[in-house]
Write a protein that binds this DNA or RNA. Structure first.
Lengths: 269, 269
DNA sequence: CTAATTGTTGCGTTATACGGAACATAAACT
DNA sequence: AGTTTATGTTCCGTATAACGCAACAATTAG
């Protein structure tokens, strides 16, 4: 009928043009971010309303994005989804950010190891696994030795708990696919118990391991966040149960949280 | 139909070289792709020469990209590197593409299982691990049962060999970090032997497992490629050694390769 | 300290990207 | 079948955003 009406005001007409009208460069990027946010397939019209652009503009931008490989069209639905260039870009970004995280974090890990006298490590997300990415051995003769690159069992690793406590339910569930391995009688093997524990960890901001893997090893961990608020890593203090008592834990909470927070901040620039 | 003739001289008549002078939207995307390609930190001048743009233009584009979080500036070097938005985008793209791969592949996996009478599966890359992503059980009563979601030992898994044979040396080495576990006396435990084997697999286009993990289980695999030519998955046929003899292998090479190639093609759109 | 290299604004001009509507295609109804 | 609604793409003249230039900052080198 008269769908053209469109008497909607010229969007932030006057009023000191706070958000200056977007450049076309900004428009492409916002278009990409729209996909990043929703993840769904979307059509031209849907995108145009979502971004407040004209269909014609949207159509042209999409064409550009498809040519560059950032979007592709699902032939059956005729809608668009993220393409291989977006994937490649993210892969490179991930490597870059991880490298930067490692470089930035190491001195702080070292400082924490000196301060606490125990071994310190950083665990990082890799796909749907959590791996041991970096470590600094403590000054003591009796200390825990981390194994670089190891894929960690998420039910016992303190860092994994800290990371998952702040992760999206979606991601948590994909990590919970496999069976939990039992290492000893303290090991958590029930998925239900584990989910409850994550809530507790999130409330405290710290996760603990009191011998759930190796009976004589205790550990504690705090999450590191990327600029978008997503937890991508954790700092872990680990050592012999005889030294990592509850009183040690209490005294180490602040330094640990502080270290993790400092690393998170340093990533933002 | 051709009322407008549209013989308007679009840029081709321009003295300027190149097909069509890039739109600014294309410029931003190319700028991003430049980072995707090199991965290094880069400054304004370097980027401007690399892309054939003026410094001023490049500077403005970079500013836009930084605002949108696609780039960030390393304060110590003052150069730019990929930012959190690029990372998020890639993460979403990866989920999208994986979902699409699973959806597209399944019917072909099923077909191959019917055709060969054996269990068929697809392994996919996840971070620096290779996981079992999807499987179809064969019709026979005695068959191999895949374990969904399992992180596979790359030294024995046939699919892992197929994927790594075509992967970048960089990626291969990051996967080779940990120790190879020995399952039996056929298991490959030497990294050197493994690297040699990968070359052979690449030459043949197929990888085999003749009881390297479970002595009575044989398997073969062929890689699946994304549109950019990167191997992100593999199709695997597995079953009892008694049936997966060399003669079975010979007869299954073509169907297996064909299935993998068909899936790869279907992803391109 | 000067010279050289790299990075960031102003400004006037020109080409680029926009909005509107026609055109085209596909799905939804009867 | 035919008709209607929804969705997507192309064309064109015009306004404006983006460009190149060159001066200006800010570092680094000599």
């Amino acid at each position: 009928m008269f769908n053209d009406a469109s008497h909607h005001p010229p969007a932030a007409a006057q009023g000191k043009q706070g958000p200056t009208s977007e450049s076309s460069a900004e428009k492409v990027l916002n278009l990409l971010l729209a996909f990043s946010a929703s993840g769904r397939e979307m059509g031209t019209t849907e995108l145009s309303v979502k971004l407040g652009l004209h269909k014609s503009t949207t159509s042209r931008l999409i064409k550009t994005l498809v040519n560059a490989g950032f979007l592709q069209q699902n032939p059956s639905t005729r809608k668009y989804l993220l393409g291989i260039s977006a994937y490649q870009l993210g892969y490179t970004a991930s490597r870059t950010l991880n490298a930067r995280l490692l470089a930035v974090a190491h001195p702080y890990l070292y400082g924490l190891a000196q301060q606490t006298g125990e071994s310190v490590a950083m665990e990082m997300v890799s796909g749907i696994n959590i791996i041991l990415a970096s470590h600094v051995e403590g000054p003591s003769h009796l200390r825990f030795n981390f194994q670089q690159g190891e894929v960690l069992p998420i039910n016992v690793a303190a860092g994994a708990k800290a990371i998952l406590a702040y992760s999206s339910p979606d991601f948590v569930e994909s990590c919970l696919q496999g069976e939990f391995k039992r290492f000893n009688d303290r090991t958590i093997v029930s998925k239900e118990d584990y989910r409850k524990l994550l809530k507790q960890v999130k409330a405290e901001g710290i996760s603990y391991d009191r011998g759930e893997r190796y009976e004589d090893i205790h550990a504690m961990a705090a999450p590191i966040f990327f600029a978008d608020g997503s937890p991508k890593a954790a700092v872990i203090i680990a050592g012999p149960a005889s030294r990592l008592t509850d009183s040690f834990f209490r005294s180490a909470v602040s330094p640990l949280k502080e270290t993790a927070a400092t690393i998170s901040r340093s990533l933002d620039l």
